[in-house]
Design a protein around this nucleic acid. Structure first.
Length: 831
RNA sequence: GCGGGAGUGGCGGAACUGGCAGACGCACCAGCCUUAGGAGCUGGCGGCCGCAAGGCCAUAGGGGUUCAAAUCCCUUCUCCCGCACCA
């Protein structure tokens, strides 16, 4: 009798897999491909069970697809650039490269302990020049196409990070890494990638992803891009024409006859010109100063009372010439649209609130089907629906859609407005004033100006020697041998760009590089990428729903337009797994609640850890770590091991097989039926539903059933038992691969199971020949019948009526209806 | 406010196309085995009534459709996530 010693079993098979290179794959157009990818990790801290859950899900999918005959690519790599490395280096007085590489080695060692089926030859590390030179290459391609540009702009600055943040990296007005640190506004020159050029495609192509990506991710992306269609209209300034015209953006141009004010954002550029010489100037300037002092934190902003002041100037409505006062208010944002709005209090909630407070008029210009709201009195609440225009000059009587159309057309014809679509999405600022990132390949020459680094000179390599202080200027600016160079055009002394790229650039395209990781002529070979991409199944955390996925989608579209690839979207299917929590919160080093993956492997074995994370909750839900439940997973695997071990000697030498159905004993038939029925359902759980937890439950039932028939020697022939045990082993194989290999060997197979196919269930065997039919009276369960499968309706009803408990319910009543579902149920309706 | 999702035993969770609610596991209880048990094995385990057979109630609450509802429809509530004065 052998003992199940997972650590020994796991080490044995990990070595075997490596020696036999079973997970290495090459593009082969003759075979159907499958690309399974888990989001690449940032190598910091320790690898915990949260990571492991993510990789386990991916590994199960990869192994199932392999067993299903797909040519599976399943790579892993490192998101190796980034601030923590730099900060750790400052703190510990080491080099970011050293710190990063140490972590990578550590991560990799632990990943190996779990037996994930990666093709490690494809490993990439984004901090290596062999990788980031292609970031630089892409940057130059975008520069050529006007998709990369430099401008001075107000940016989000995190004091703690001492660098700029992209809009996407600002959460509730604070840094995404430092949730307590409000971002500051800073005006600096920086590089942008023109994500807005693809705004429409990024929205429209979401339709292709519906059903394949989680609804909420699609919703979040749509929300983030924030497309809204409307019109821009210019209002002349009555008193000082030179201060105008002022342009507003509106989605409801049809309500323009109801505008009773023009409202500007406090930092609107026309402000000075408007206030110059205004009779209200003495009151307005202090009010403006006070408004600018107000908190910019998002939660304050959202709940703040609407306040405003009158500028003393008037704007002229281009449609009817009406002069309306120009106000300034805190709720109008310079960042959105044009930074100015027309206030239509009767048809907009915010304008209504503002107008009520400051006594502006609320003329009704749109009415609903019942003529509401009445147009001869101020409305009690804003009417924001579509309806029919009233009090709108020549447009009165038109339906909202038609009015919008006609009015926009007139504005365009007369040159005071145009149809326009605005987006919430901004261009992606990628400059970072830090060291540990890809250098931006630009040279500034006093003579020639800004000059891109010639392609032949790539990569621009990060210098090794650098003094890191974290004090807010680019460390590269203090490295003379880096910054000083010669101009590629005039060959006179020139200086390099010292900012580095946002690390989201690295991860925006890494999965293409996996397809051709060592190419030194191009980012990748298009035919290889053409075979492997797009990703068939991408798996990662919901935290990347906007940032990483939006950038990746953008990058994909750019590469397509560069002619490098054919597809529109990088990932055909996306799965967002739940977090692993302990004490109700996500595992994290800072909370000190991590369960280390290595500890787990040492205590119970990797297979137990894998099984537990799959069994404890469906993969999309959060999972609360429970030490007791792990014991359960361990017990189950031990039980399976003992079961196989107990019978291995007797069955290892025979051939598995059911033989003739007719020759089966009752017990054999019951076992085989259970085994094949389990296989049928487990197959469907793996293929279509990803219900790993219920698949495991089904296998547990089968094992329990086998157990219940002990001693099996007496009633079941070895070839029958072997078939059942082989099925158990194969069904477990994707989830607990090491143990499955060991069992497979115990069952007499010499060549390992990594190239064994997923078994097909035998429908004949799986079919039950006796079924339990429930008998209901008026929909309530009153009895059960054990009958042969496929019995006719009349026969079933007759048997049902024979049941004593059923008789008791219907005696003396009239049978009005009989419902029969074959092999399942008889429902007798009595009155 | 808008958008996305969820609500089932003490706990994690099953329940496929509307057809036995609570599979499987954890915890707990009883028993067996044992020098011992944090091992293994057997049985029990939603609530109420009952010695039992059995009955009644039960999938957040209320209403509806249906022979039949955790599942479909309406409605109310609660919770989680995202966005949030987006003009």
């Amino acid at each position: 009798m052998a003992d199940y010693i997972p650590q020994a079993v796991e080490a044995k098979w990990q070595k075997r897999w490596e020696d036999e290179r079973v997970f290495e794959t090459e593009a082969d157009p003759a075979k159907p491909k499958y690309y399974v990818l888990e989001m690449l990790p940032y190598p910091s801290g320790t690898l915990h069970m949260g990571h492991m859950r993510n990789y386990t899900i991916g590994d199960v999918v990869a192994r199932v697809k392999r067993m299903r005959g797909f040519n599976v690519i399943h790579p892993m790599g490192w998101d190796a650039f980034g601030l923590p490395a730099e900060n750790a280096a400052i703190k510990n007085n080491t080099h970011p490269r050293e710190w990063t590489n140490k972590n990578i080695t550590e991560f990799k060692r632990v990943l190996h302990l779990f037996g994930f089926s990666y093709d490690w030859r494809r490993e990439i590390s984004t901090c290596e020049p062999e990788y980031y030179r292609w970031n630089q290459w892409f940057f130059l391609r975008m520069l050529e196409r006007g998709l990369a540009y430099r401008k001075k702009s107000r940016v989000n600055w995190c004091v703690k990070c001492a660098t700029v943040l992209a809009n996407e990296q600002v959460v509730n007005g604070c840094c995404w890494r430092h949730e307590e640190t409000p971002v500051e506004a800073k005006e600096i020159e920086q590089w942008f990638l023109k994500t807005t050029a693809y705004a429409d495609q990024l929205i429209d192509d979401l339709k292709q992803l519906e059903g394949s990506w989680p609804d909420r991710v699609i919703a979040m992306q749509r929300n983030w891009i924030g497309k809204s269609q409307g019109a821009k209209v210019k209002f002349a300034v009555a008193e000082t024409p030179a201060a105008g015209p002022i342009e507003v953006f509106t989605t409801r141009i049809d309500t323009i006859y109801g505008a009773t004010a023009l409202i500007l954002a406090p930092n609107h550029p026309a402000m000075q010109a408007l206030l110059e010489g205004s009779p209200e100037r003495a009151k307005a300037e202090p009010a403006l100063a006070a408004m600018r002092q107000m908190s910019v934190k998002a939660e304050d902003l959202a709940t703040a009372e609407k306040i405003g002041f009158y500028t003393g100037r008037h704007a002229r409505n281009p449609f009817n010439g009406a002069e309306i006062p120009i106000w300034v208010a805190n709720f109008v944002l310079m960042e959105y649209g044009t930074g100015a709005i027309m206030a239509v209090p009767a048809h907009d909630e915010r304008d209504f609130e503002f107008a009520t407070k400051y006594g502006l008029g609320k003329p009704v210009v749109v009415q609903g089907p019942a003529g509401e709201p009445a147009s001869d009195a101020p409305p009690k609440e804003p009417f924001t629906e579509y309806g029919k225009s009233v009090n709108s000059g020549p447009y009165s009587g038109l339906e909202t859609a038609a009015a919008m159309e006609k009015m926009a057309a007139e504005a365009e014809a007369k040159g005071f407005g145009k149809r326009e679509t605005v987006y919430r999405l901004k261009d992606w600022g990628i400059s970072r004033q830090r060291y540990w990132g890809a250098p931006i390949p630009i040279i500034y020459c006093p003579e020639c100006g800004m000059v891109p680094v010639p392609e032949a000179d790539l990569p621009v390599v990060l210098p090794q020697d650098v003094k890191l202080t974290g004090l807010g200027t680019s460390p590269l600016a203090h490295v003379p041998q880096f910054i000083n160079t010669t101009c590629p055009l005039c060959h006179r002394p020139a200086k390099r760009e010292t900012d580095t790229m946002d690390t989201f650039v690295d991860s925006a395209w890494y999965f293409y590089r996996y397809c051709d990781p060592h190419n030194d002529k191009a980012p990748f070979d298009s035919s290889k990428v053409g075979y492997w991409m797009p990703i068939d199944q991408y798996i990662g955390g919901i935290t990347h729903a906007i940032l990483h996925l939006l950038y990746s989608r953008f990058w994909c579209k750019v590469m397509r337009d560069l002619g490098l690839i054919q597809h529109n979207e990088p990932a055909a299917r996306l799965f967002t797994q739940g977090m692993v929590q302990k004490g109700g919160v996500a595992m994290s080093k800072s909370r000190g609640n991590v369960v280390g993956a290595e500890d787990m492997a040492q205590k119970y074995g990797a297979d137990t850890g894998r099984l537990y994370t799959l069994f404890a909750a469906p993969p999309e839900k959060d999972l609360e770590w429970s030490e007791e439940s792990i014991e359960g997973a361990w017990r189950f695997l031990s039980r399976v091991f003992r079961l196989v071990d107990r019978h291995a000697g007797r069955i290892a030498g025979v051939c598995a097989g059911a033989g003739e159905m007719a020759a089966l004993s009752e017990k054999e038939r019951v076992l085989l039926r259970k085994a094949h029925e389990t296989l049928r359902r487990v197959t469907s759980d793996f293929e279509t539903r990803w219900h790993f937890n219920s698949a495991i439950a089904l296998i547990m039932e089968l094992v329990n059933e086998l157990h219940a028939h002990e001693p099996l020697e007496q009633a079941v022939r070895p070839e029958i038992l072997k078939e059942a045990l082989e099925l158990v082993t194969l069904m477990l194989a994707p989830m607990v691969p090491h143990l499955a290999e060991e069992l497979w060997e115990m069952l007499g197979h010499k060549n390992g199971l990594s190239r064994v196919s997923w078994p097909d269930y035998n429908a004949e065997l799986a079919r039950a020949d006796e079924v339990e039919v429930m008998v209901q009276v008026n929909g309530r369960l009153r009895g059960r019948l054990r009958v042969a499968a496929g019995l006719g309706e009349e026969e079933l009803v007759r048997l049902a009526l024979d049941e004593a408990a059923v008789r008791a319910q219907i005696d003396g009543k009239r049978l009005v209806k009989k419902i029969v579902v074959a092999d399942k149920l008889v429902n007798l309706v009595v009155a």
